[in-house]
Design a protein around this nucleic acid. Structure first.
Lengths: 332, 332
DNA sequence: ATCTTCTTTGCAACCGGTTGCAGCTCGGAA
DNA sequence: TTCCGAGCTGCAACCGGTTGCAAAGAAGAT
């Protein structure tokens, strides 16, 4: 149906190899010939078949992008930027969702392996061992995770957590709580360590509440504990949790930020639209997508000899409406 | 590096064609032989190379999914379900974002064409002519759009718009407004026609305000007009517009739903979290993703002979907090 | 015992490109 | 004039599978 390299060869009176070179190594072909070939190709509407090319070269010019849950608002900006960045480099990207299931994740990586040059793992649910094993088959880059010998893109959530704690301290809060995420989460661990340290440095108590599901429901469910804790300033695992928490608190007649201040993490769209607008630690998700693609292509280019690179991206605090000084009657 | 079909053939003492058939037409090979081959394959960690297979069969077992903007909360649930549904059928999906640019969209379809068996176009920005032309190269299915001779998945937004108008009427509103979307949008046109007709049937005035950008900013910018229109009940093009509109109205001291009721369309996550929680016409986005994949695979299977199918999915009204009876002092 | 038919397997061409190697042509140096 | 090297181009094998065709052997029919 569609024109092949042989059709172009016939039409322009040269051998297929010359046509091939016209597209993949133009400097090797005489300008006059090249133009003739190009004209014929144009004429026939010829486009190189990327599948066929992949078979001989071993390079597909495709990438895989695996996330736990596409519908989680944290991921779309990352997917968007990764995909756009990849396309600029002539790569297409498969996007797949594991539904938070590590078995699906593993299977996915394996079936994708032959079809892509590398895979981006965003907040993988797989264990480090499994990831290292899979890396033998195909270049991997992880986002928000540290795996030995593998390039990674990290967001400096520890710094963000410190900023959040400092913000609450500056507002006058003296009793803080951290509503954590799932137990296995790298991000959650980082936040916890950093927030605890920063609070300790200030001689302030930080109560840890968790683990919790990283969702609105998780936050909703944690509301009772937060209230009981007596904390007036709360840092939540992410914005969805924060939003759920605010909801749960207001159901209990606790006002945010009047009685309790709440800070989220991620800076997703719903947080911006929430009432009160959420104060949050903004994660550089778009930058992470681009950086991850860069690291992955770098690893792909280098082959076995790849030196794993580590990119740490800054986070920042976005102060909006969900934080305020503690109520004057609050314990100090 | 990785085991090929020939390695398996050697290891099990049969010809490559037998190995091939063991995987792609098992009923053609003797059970005993098959087991031997399977064992050798297992042993070597052999997995058929989908790229190589695609080259001979002409079937890639991949699909393309093109959306205008991945970060628009309307799309992720659709992407998620389409991708999951496709995977169950052993298809992987390329996801691409056009940034609302129809040139990018066209280029994307063309470069993807050889690599996928079909493409899903969600709310395409391309003109019908261009889409029909591209359909000659590759099976296409459109979502939320009607294109001649092409399968489509439509969401019955007209019905939703009627429900919305009826809801407002039932609450007692007598002066309504419709805040439209972009001028070229199929959805916007459907809404407009249906809402206008329903209002007319009830002998009620419906003022049309637009076109507007389909974003929060679009809604924000329309707030002044809405207020001037004197309407007490408003149907917005989508939830983002509705949210922006509510924001703009409250900036002007107009309360929702106290003074004006607002209904959105889509039922995206941020709408559920907004304050007031948004009353909205829920779009069956997940179902649309699945259905679109089904129609596409059907078209792929049928080849040229494909009879275009049309799937219309129901919408429903989700009443939350952004609608209420008009203020008693309102004009009747 | 002979002829069919069915099952199973092998052979080899093919899908659409890429690429190492060899050969040809031509200009310039010796 | 001869020789050399650079620049182009063609040849053919190869990537990893699939598939139409043919052949061999077994089972069943007559």
């Amino acid at each position: 149906m569609a024109a092949t390299i042989r059709d172009v060869a016939n039409a322009s009176g040269v051998h297929v190899s010359t046509v091939s070179r016209t597209f993949s190594a133009p400097h090797l072909v005489n300008p006059a010939t090249r133009n003739r070939v190009l004209a014929a190709a144009e004429d026939l509407g010829y486009r190189p078949n990327r599948v066929a090319r992949a078979l001989t070269t071993g390079r597909t010019n495709n990438l895989g992008l695996i996330v736990a849950d596409i519908a989680n608002p944290f991921f779309p900006p990352l997917i968007k930027s990764a995909q756009a960045h990849a396309r600029e480099r002539d790569y297409h990207v498969f996007v797949a969702d594991t539904d938070e299931d590590h078995l699906v994740e593993e299977e996915l990586i394996q079936t994708l392996a032959k079809q892509v040059d590398g895979v981006l793992l965003c907040s993988p649910r797989l264990g480090n061992r499994a990831i290292e094993r899979l890396a033998a088959d195909i270049p991997l880059v992880v986002v928000n995770r540290r795996v030995k010998g593998m390039s990674a893109v990290l967001m400096d959530v520890a710094h963000g957590a410190r900023l959040a704690v400092e913000h609450l301290l500056a507002l006058g809060h003296r009793r803080l709580a951290l509503v954590t995420g799932p137990s296995g989460s790298w991000t959650s661990g980082e936040m916890r360590a950093a927030a605890a340290q920063r609070a300790k440095d200030a001689g302030i108590e930080l109560v840890i509440l968790g683990p919790n599901a990283p969702t609105e429901r998780g936050g909703l469910a944690a509301a009772a504990q937060v209230r009981r804790s007596g904390a007036t300033g709360v840092l939540a695992y992410n914005d969805m949790v924060a939003i759920g928490l605010i909801e749960g608190l207001s159901e209990r007649g606790v006002s945010v930020p009047g009685d309790i201040s709440v800070i989220g993490v991620d800076d997703i769209v719903p947080g911006r639209l929430n009432r009160p607008k959420l104060t949050t630690v903004a994660m550089p998700t778009s930058a992470a997508g681009r950086t991850a693609v860069d690291l992955l292509l770098q690893a792909v280019g280098a082959g076995e000899a790849a030196t794993p690179a580590l990119a740490t991206l800054e986070t920042s605090l976005v102060v909006r409406e969900s934080t305020a000084p503690p109520p004057s009657g609050g314990r100090t």
